[in-house]
């Protein structure tokens, strides 16, 4: 089931949550809506589900206009950020809910419901919790039950709102991998919202980066990370160093498009900064301020002659070959850079 989003707009009072958004979600893909809080990603997800009505624009499910269809008829599965499990029902009844509320002629028999619920609980590996109440589960378990409940109605589209937002780092990582595997297994068109770039890049087939109610870029995780379309995407997906051509002339010419313009900015990721001990035409002089080892990488805080800070990242092995020390004078140059016209509004 593909989803087509056409010129969707939504305002809350004077605040523009979504501004003419167009997007196509392909059948069977796992798509991430990524952006800072307030960028409109959750609003877009709720509009797809039918929990929010757009001010303008259309939503098509598989070519069919569903903009005005009631949420209960859209056949979507929705996983809420805080799970929204029915607190007075057991896990079993939570998962069975969607089947039990069906009209009589389409409702499965009790036996069939029982079989389906246990099948789903096995899928999320929590069959042993069937008789517990939500309050007796851990956060990660609740999340998986919420997912099983959403899948019970055999949704054509699965929507997840910050699915791992309320969990601690370790559980998040486990659940991410688990969600990816689950998606491969059930293969339902899925859209999830996240503000965590690592999560989006790791789990999604394609990533939609949003900012201030607009889509900045749509692409595979590699595309959005390696070739960001806008300065915002560059800055949102990981750390970045900025070099202004007025100040650091030679730097703006090493990217793939050397820009003569004197109001350009080069964006360079910390791991794309090369540190040399000998100068050449393309290098800038820098002093090493601090050296920090963080897990498998070593982060160097450098300072240019004019006082601008620069961050560089090396693997431990690379660092072991050169062992820079703080206070040392080095020469830096970008392996690759992306140059954008300078934004004077900042």
């Amino acid at each position: 089931m593909s989803i087509e989003i056409q010129s969707i707009a939504k305002h809350f009072g004077a605040f523009t949550a979504l501004d003419n958004v167009n997007l196509k979600v392909e059948t069977g893909e796992l798509l991430a809506l990524l952006g800072p809080s307030g960028c409109g990603k959750t609003t877009l997800l709720r509009i797809i589900a039918g929990l929010e009505t757009p001010d303008a624009g259309q939503i098509h499910f598989h070519g069919e206009d569903t903009t005005d269809r009631h949420v209960r008829e859209r056949q979507v599965g929705f996983v809420f950020q805080h799970y929204a499990l029915f607190r007075h029902m057991t896990v079993f009844e939570n998962v069975a809910f969607g089947l039990r509320v069906r009209p009589k002629h389409t409702r499965p028999s009790d036996k069939e419901i029982k079989r389906r619920v246990h099948e789903l609980l096995n899928l999320v590996q929590l069959d042993w919790l069937a008789d517990r109440y939500p309050a007796q589960l851990s956060g990660g378990q609740r999340q998986r039950i919420a997912l099983a409940r959403a899948l019970a109605v055999e949704p054509k589209v699965l929507l997840l709102d910050e699915p791992f937002g309320a969990l601690d780092t370790k559980v998040r990582k486990e659940l991410r991998r688990w969600l990816k595997r689950l998606h491969e297994e059930v293969n339902v068109t899925s859209v999830f919202v996240t503000h965590d770039q690592e999560e989006a890049l790791e789990v999604a087939d394609r990533v939609v980066v949003m900012n201030k109610g607009r889509i900045e870029q749509v692409g595979t995780p590699e595309q959005v990370y390696d070739t960001p379309a806008t300065p915002f995407v560059y800055q949102f997906l990981g750390d970045v160093n900025l070099f202004h051509s007025r100040v650091h002339g030679s730097f703006t010419q090493v990217g793939e498009h050397p820009i003569p313009n004197d109001s350009a900015v080069a964006y360079v990721r910390p791991h794309d900064i090369e540190i040399l001990r000998e100068p050449n035409q393309q290098t800038l002089v820098a002093a090493v301020d601090h050296v920090r080892t963080i897990g498998s990488t070593v982060r160097l805080e450098l300072r240019l002659e004019n006082g601008d800070p620069v961050e560089a990242e090396l693997s431990r092995d690379a660092f072991a070959l050169n062992r820079y020390t703080s206070g040392e004078r080095v020469y830096i140059r970008p392996r690759t850079a992306r140059v954008f016209a300078e934004d004077f509004t900042i």
């Binding site: 209960r72 929705f78 809420f80 929204a84 809910f97």
Partner: peptide, 20 residues
């Protein structure tokens, strides 16, 4: 949120009220 969850799962207004 629980009411919204019930609605997404296909519950009618009455079912939502009585069951959730």
């Amino acid at each position: 949120e629980e009411e919204q969850a019930a609605m997404v799962l296909g519950a009618s207004g009455w079912q939502m009220f009585w069951r959730v």
